[in-house]
Design a protein around this nucleic acid. Sequence first.
RNA 1: GGGUGAUUAGCUCAGCUGGUUAGAGCGCCGCCCUUACAAGGCGGAGGUCGUAAGUUCGACUCUUACAUCACCCACCA
Length: 910
Amino acid sequence: MNKQYKPQEIEQAIYDEWEKNKCFSPKQSSSKFSIVLPPPNVTGTLHMGHAFQHTIIDILVRYHRMLGKSVLWQPGTDHAGIATQLVVENRIKNTGRDVKALSREEFIDEVWAWKELSGNTIINQTKRIGSSADWSRNRFTMDDGLSKIVEDVFISLYEEKLIYRGNRLVNWDIKLQTAVSDLEVVNKEQDGYLYYLRYQLKDSSDSIVVATTRPETFFGDSAICINPEDTRYKHLIGKEITLPMIKRNIPVIQDEMVDMDFGTGCLKITPAHDFNDYKVGKKHNLDFINILNKDGTLNENVHEKYIGKNIHTVREELVNDLEKEQILVKKDKYQNTVPIGERTGEIIEPLLTNQWFMSMSSLAEKGVKVVEDKKVNFVPKHWEKIYFNWLRNIEDWCISRQIFWGHRIPAWYDDNANIYVGKSEKEIRNKYELADNINLIQDSDVLDTWFSSSLWPFSTLGWKDDKSVFEKYFPTNLLVTGFDIIFFWVARMIMMSIKFTDNIPFNKVYIHGLVRDSEGKKMSKSIGNVIDPLDVIDGISLDKLLEKRTTSLLNERQKADVIKKTKRDFPTGIREYGADALRFNFCAMASTGRDINFDLNRIEGYRNFCNKIWNASRYILMSCEGFNYQEKINPNDSSIFDKWILYSLDNVVSDFKKYTTTYRFDLMANGIYDFVWNEYCDWYLEISKYNMNDVTKNHLIFSILRIIKLCHPIIPFITENIWKEFYKCKFVTEKMLIDSSFPSQIRISKEDDVEVRVNRIREIIKKIRKTRTELGIHPKDIIITKIHIKKLEMKNDLIEHQGLIESMTNTNIDITAEQSNVSEYIDLIDDNYTLYLKIRNMINIQEEMKRIDKKLKELEAIVTKINFKLNNKSFIEKAPSEIINQNISNKSKIENDILSLNNLRKTLSN
RNA sequence: GGGUGAUUAGCUCAGCUGGUUAGAGCGCCGCCCUUACAAGGCGGAGGUCGUAAGUUCGACUCUUACAUCACCCACCA
């Protein structure tokens, strides 16, 4: 074995070996564990969020595999309609070609080519992280099988009238020229104005003033609305006003939805361009006047001067004109929110169009129920509230998109706009007995990408094509995903599964946090703080990192900023830390659903931890060369240290199991870290050096193998590699760690005092070491020490391990029955013993005295506090006895410390 | 406007159903290149747990109010 752990030399080979040996395919077993991977979008490469998610899933997958279950991790990728289409459009543009010149078929071919590229990149990245998914079952949402299911589901929902086509107000993305769902719209605050417009009454010289943030929509007004309680305008109800410029007459109506205190109390109603107005329009049976073309230009319903102008840029000109004509009364600064398309960043316009909708209320009800009934559980639980809230206020889902990339809607129209839904034109002609001379055209729209995603847990698991797989692995045990897609995906999967399989898709939903940068900022290309998981695994030079972060930035100032910050944060680039360190980091950071601040220092710490395990293993292999290892431990041979470490290890194992069910990955990682480093390496391995006999060797191998197994789910590469070394030495018979079984509890009869006895010895060692460094005694100077034992039960242990203590403290020890009060000794007092250290060449007496006085003060304050408690009558009466005893024993311990310090003080002052 | 989460050491975070001298990693300080590991060893400094009140024998932990930050939902044009 190498002296240093070098992840880049081992990881690739190990992964290849796992794949070659088909280690990721489910084994035969009566119990199963199944999980689907949230399919990443084929929009490019994986980011830190994916790496985090994969790590969490992989830890559980490997753990359950080691429990001997039939484990299926179903991987795949998502076609991600709009997002992917945009990426490909940009690519085409960047090569200087015209996207619009391409036919639908040509464009889709381009996307498929891109999909190959991106899909492969993603799979390779996933592998580099160590994910043990069953690649033989890899799926893509637009695979034939999955597409067929999408089609079937659509048809069946249509036949049940849960999918319908309707002319409705939808969120229209002008840039993409497609409808998008409510969820794909984000609201942004913006500085704007509130414009006051004067409308003239018909047949009267009177006028009224309305306030609006969108003056350009007045061409589409079909009423003025006032609150029935508003005495200022009561006389106007039923009258008509004439719209400026276009001179169209519209009625004045009343509705209590109008806020009398806002603006003038008069509200213009534009039913075809505002969601609230749409409702008013429906309620009062108003005209729906559309003023917009699909490309965002104004149509012939506006004044001719503005026809063909863009609705987003026409405002300034229009307002100027209104001002000239004295229609604009005034404008006030006003902060309002505008809807922005999530993908394009363009302002979304409400637009009246024909779209396909899915009726949600009945499905949502069932979706609520399974969570209420605890058939599906969210971790952390508070997400259930958010889930309920959304489902209980759900609107129908607009599922059609006017783009090319996606599942084409299986609907055809004849020349009279009759709708036929079916698998193909041929099937439809049969089904509806349509004559050949009837012209049929397929709907050009595709489905919202989340439609196919919502079927993912069953469409990938053989719902239609492999009953044995479906029955065995569905429902899955768990879903691991981010909170940002609870509505988009999680809720819809639950609803669709119930609808089509009559079952839930998963029992548990573990919601993890977001991976942010080290300052807690969202990682984003425009801020230039993105770190690629592969760059942490493989390392990257500063130059390359700068290039990566700035190539997509156009703004020069932004570029300079990013360069400056990157140089500050990564002056020498990023070193290669390996996948295991990255994984351990994610594990350690994954506390209950909180966001993660990604910090390279942390990674380095965990890389060091891997190195620690590496070297601990190396030490044991070196020490046990040629040793005839017996897998069975005979407790009669074990020293108290052997027993102690086995007990502790047992606790770590049972904690690990507990944390897999409570999803406390952070505690899992910390428990292992603490045990391996601070107990196993710092103490047990050090102790073993003093007494390297066959019994010790046997325990060393036994314990390290358990540790390697325990760590494998988190850090699979390094542990598998170490395992190979043990296999070579014939210490293990199973060839591959991934196939081995997770450690079970060792049931050696517990001896309660083992830990106490070991700790006493550790205490003595620590006390001596502490005193040595505090007094500035060089490590090489031997300290003459006497130990006076007060508690007889300690004596045997002390005598037995005297040499060990001497070697670990560099002392010469005399175990004596007598108290000593020779002045060249200082005494450290404990309940059970007193240590006398013969100290020469003391230094810095002044400073030591100061330190001692400070410590004394602290301890005395604590004693005072405890005394206060113990003297408190109600405390004695009401507190449980074990708490009281604890206080009493603490008190005596601290009083000993005080005594020691006082003695030390006395010795020093002489 | 409604909701959720957060606020603990210089930084990043643990602290479960109230009871330890409030912990860890990184960073910092001192000593040590002791043949598993300097990506290391030994030791150390550093916190009135956001503020205020309340419940309790006892509050980092429970209650209420407030402050600050983050996010989500709905938006009065």
